[in-house]
Amino acid sequence: MPGSTANQGFSFALAGDAPCSWAVTEQLLASQVETKSVGFDTDSARVAANNMVKISKSNASAIGFLSYDTVEFNRGTPTDLSVYNGVLLNPGYYLIGGEAQVITTSAGNNTSKYFSGGIQGAVGFVASDIAASGYSLTVEGTFSNTNGPAPWPNTAVGASAVVQATTPNTHIRFAPGGSTIDSYLYVQMWAFQIGDL
């Protein structure tokens, strides 16, 4: 019976082992080291390329419900543009964000933007009212292009947060909304995985 090292359990021959088994032990050691090395190769790739995703929509006609139509890049984080209309997070810590750029055509715009999704321990912001929820996150930015003289400049609103996803397919969505006649120039949302839980 070969010996094994204290930390990794790597095999080595003992003097009392039959000499004809030494080669087998050496083969076993090589195999064990190879298995360990493959794990590091996998981890190296994981660390060097954190999961991240960005989806967007350009030139939507009018502010209201917005369907994303473009996955600009996606590395390891699924998207679902047909049902959830957003991003599906795997468990982990994330920096998420979103921004809506709006072509402004009048004064008095008053548009709210918000994220929603199932993220543990987060908080819901709904307009001026805040409701805490254990399984939803809504962060919101607002803009108002009020009382200024024409021409009214294009404007943008965005929000970001560090969040925790605890279950697979935790979905988040940056959902701009509001009541205005203006149109979207570009709406984007992204998620960058900070690390594992």
Binding site: G3, T5, A6, N7, Q8, F10, S11, F12, A13, W22, T25, E26, L29, V33, K36, F40, D43, S44, R46, V47, Y93, I194, G195, D196, L197
Partner: peptide, 25 residues
């Protein structure tokens, strides 16, 4: 063989710790 196995064995715990920390920011 013991020297080789021990040499490799001593090297890996440090890497394990670094990789574990790097994925858990």
């Amino acid at each position: 063989l013991f020297a080789l196995a021990s040499g490799v064995d001593a090297k890996f715990p440090g890497w394990d710790a670094i990789f574990a920390a790097s994925t858990k920011q």
